[in-house]
Write a protein that binds this DNA or RNA. Structure first.
Lengths: 209, 209
DNA sequence: TTTCCTTAGTGATTTCTGTCACAGTTTAGG
DNA sequence: CCTAAACTGTGACAGAAATCACTAAGGAAA
């Protein structure tokens, strides 16, 4: 069912034995564009590894406003799903598929065996934590030290890097991701357009930087 | 040199065998109040576990302003030192001892053995990651969704919980931790004093909430 | 085609925060 | 004891961002 050679290509840290083992114990699941993959308060029965597609991770506040944190794509794993799965704890963040996304679900009960029997696995887990942690630090830098214009610029660069220069986003969506307001984003985007950093269309933005 | 029973008391996840092993391979080191334990850009040769004392972890921006993230105390470990040590990477945050702090240094070369031979160790590592990750999420919530008055209130509660109701802090230090300015903090503190949430003294604040 | 809803643009106003200026008070060090 | 430095309190002002109010344009559906 799962092809272990394909897994090795997507997860370079997996050796043949590990890939074969993971392939034998995991299940594939497909999420469709826009589908919610993970909700605040949800419990996990499995760790999730992304095979293909893109996932948006964000935080939700009590009053419903959100805040974009980072993307996951093929070869990544959801750090929280691994921790929460191992410790059987509730999730603290939201995840939605931004495009059709295929994931590998590894049931909790194999976590001990993976961790102790496969060196490649725990290197993979450590790498996952480290990179998510670092992304969070960058997020903190941005909201703690930068103004909205710089944050917007960084946000657009980041989105363009992952999703392409032609972004299908409304100003309202961007405002949500940055937890700002639509008018502020509209004004800043206009300014960026004057500075030849973007071209604005209805429902989409072309990033030139 | 290291007493493995003492270690088990401080790190409840360690079984006798693990505690004895850790005791045999680690070295103790003492940092004095105010001493910098870890700098941005520094490389690790060891993972650091806190035996006693308190450590303040914070982020530094390019222009030198800082931003408080969280404390570590006895029984905790520095998540970044463990990741960076294993992967031989540079640190991204700053750490200073807020009081005399004793730490256990575990050389990198034992990481593989610990991880694969000791179940208690990787549970401990996972727990460390999860709790630091969650603390970062709370930090993000605060700066993303809250105003300075709420952030200050949260900050004071947090400090009081770790360091006691009587805080030896100047307004300037608080402003640095929250990456704000002294005047703003002074004014908000005055307001909190009117609302009987704190009592202000020179060089110290009594937290009543 | 006409209507309606979503998206976008923009001025006016307000709130929050940061900055400047300065005064008063306490503490440390010579 | 005296002076300088550090800490605190406050008014005035500036700038960023949020909010309100409205207009206009584009696209979808009737």
């Amino acid at each position: 069912m799962n092809d272990s050679e394909e897994l090795q290509k997507i997860f370079p840290k997996f050796d043949a034995k590990l890939a074969a083992f993971v392939a034998s114990i995991s299940e594939r699941k497909t999420f469709y564009e826009g589908e919610i993959m993970m909700k605040t308060g949800q419990y996990f029965k499995a760790a999730m590894l992304i095979i293909s597609g893109k996932v948006k991770l964000y935080r939700e506040s009590d009053d419903g406003s959100e805040f974009f944190m980072y993307f996951l794509e093929g070869g990544n794993a959801c750090a929280l799903s691994m921790i929460c799965a191992t410790r059987n704890q509730a999730s603290e963040i939201m995840a939605t598929a931004v495009e059709e996304t295929e994931v590998l679900m590894i049931p909790i009960r194999y976590m001990d065996e993976l961790m102790t029997q496969h060196k490649g696995w725990y290197y993979f887990v450590l790498e996952t934590y480290r990179s998510r942690f670092e992304e969070l630090l960058v997020v903190i830098d941005n909201i703690a030290f930068k103004n909205m214009d710089e944050r917007l610029e960084w946000y657009l660069k980041q989105q363009a890097a992952k999703l392409g220069k032609q972004l299908s986003l409304t100003h309202q969506q961007i405002a949500n991701d940055l937890s700002s307001s639509r008018e502020v984003i509209s004004r800043l985007l206009k300014k960026m357009e004057k500075n030849q950093m973007v071209v604005l269309h209805r429902n989409s933005i072309e990033v030139l930087i």
